[in-house]
Design a protein around this nucleic acid. Structure first.
Lengths: 217, 217
DNA sequence: GTTCGAATGTTGACACTGTCAAGATTGAGC
DNA sequence: GCTCAATCTTGACAGTGTCAACATTCGAAC
């Protein structure tokens, strides 16, 4: 399992193929992904990929898994920027931050995001991702909201679904829908309203009074 | 332009191709759609489609437009069932009804829904759909909410985006995501919570007090 | 009623794709 | 040093979108 550089055995073809796939999807989107094209990029014959992947879909699922991890990274980047001390406001802003991180990735890497969408089920079912999936992270942040008394325990049910729906839908509207042509500023403003709407809804579950611009800081 | 049944000229090949495309996508999803396959179904040579569509994508956009109209139909079916007299509660339930109708279609016709998603931008930009698009209908229902004083005018901004994001995201989670394997009852319960969350958020914009189970009737 | 052009449908070809089967090459363990 | 399994290659097949050239037919102008 040493380095290749020369001839027959590539060394780590599997990883090279995945990286080439990421580059390809980044440029041409999910439909542009072709095994034969990847083989050419990596200077290997067509069919070499079949020693490492059962079929095209198998590769797609693997790449989608990587993308999921990147999405979590993007969410955590936003999470790390929340410096608020007040526990309640901090938890609220952390929830908003996960949403912003999710959308960040979708807008920055629309091709990869579309790929991840295309095999959402395969990823969430077959692979555990070592708990590094968006759903788990979102659940933890929602638990914080309950702990600080902002979100009523009764409203905690299906909260992942509610939040994920809103943010995922917004991401798609931004990459493929009517928000596609808008400026970053307009998109950010629209996302703010989505996040504020969720925040306002959760505040109502415990009767917490909130300020209009609490989330924006 | 009379009927075909015999030979060279088909009669209305364009329409026949579109219908065949709908049937194909219904069975095999968007990726299963192949021009040559359609030609076979309609008993016409490959390439005949090129007299009516510029390329494959042109056909897809046309079909997506039809699907959009069907989605609006589904929304209006739910809207028609709202019989509530009280103006405020009526408007609130009408908003929820549009969401339910949208999800109804996605769950009933996942293949067609996926196709519509794939060319969301093309549809919303190129074709006017004679105003029969989900966004316009949603806007009208939101205006009602403002008229009856439930939704604050300031919160009306980007309300289409907020609602559409939530409902569209929920639809995708239902067709391709973690809600795929759940029962209809569980899915309905989850959707209720999404709709209640939106309702609760909008109530807060005008300080309207609402009952917990207002929306479910 | 005949003729001619435009619309429509067909045939053939090319490049590209995924995938299977069979052979060639190599590294690792005995 | 030999063997075997892992890995990569070559060759083939069916399927696809799309272009070019050809065939047929409908409708209108004369």
């Amino acid at each position: 399992m040493t380095l290749p550089t020369g001839s027959y055995h590539h060394g780590d073809l599997r990883e090279a193929l995945i990286e080439a796939a990421v580059a390809s999807v980044r440029e041409n989107g999910p439909d542009g992904l072709a095994l034969r094209d990847l083989a050419r990029r990596v200077h290997v014959s067509h069919n070499a990929a079949y020693r490492h992947f059962a079929d095209r879909d198998d590769l797609v699922v693997e790449v989608a898994g990587r993308v999921m991890v990147s999405i979590v990274d993007s969410m955590q980047t936003r999470l790390a920027k929340v410096r608020t001390r007040d526990p309640v406001l901090r938890a609220r802003r952390r929830l908003a931050a996960t949403g912003r991180g999710y959308v960040d990735f979708a807008v920055t890497e629309p091709g990869l995001f579309r790929l991840a969408c295309s095999s959402l089920s395969a990823v969430s079912s077959t692979i555990t991702l070592r708990e590094r999936d968006p759903l788990t992270l979102l659940g933890e942040v929602l638990d914080e909201l309950v702990d600080v008394g902002f979100l009523a325990p009764a409203a905690r049910v299906d909260a992942e679904i509610t939040c994920w729906s809103a943010v995922h839908g917004f991401s798609i509207l931004s990459t493929d829908g009517p928000l596609q042509g808008t400026t970053a500023k307009e998109r950010t403003a629209a996302l703010d309203r989505v996040l504020i709407s969720i925040d306002r809804s959760y505040a109502a579950t415990t009767g917490t009074t909130i300020g209009a611009r609490d989330l924006l800081g």
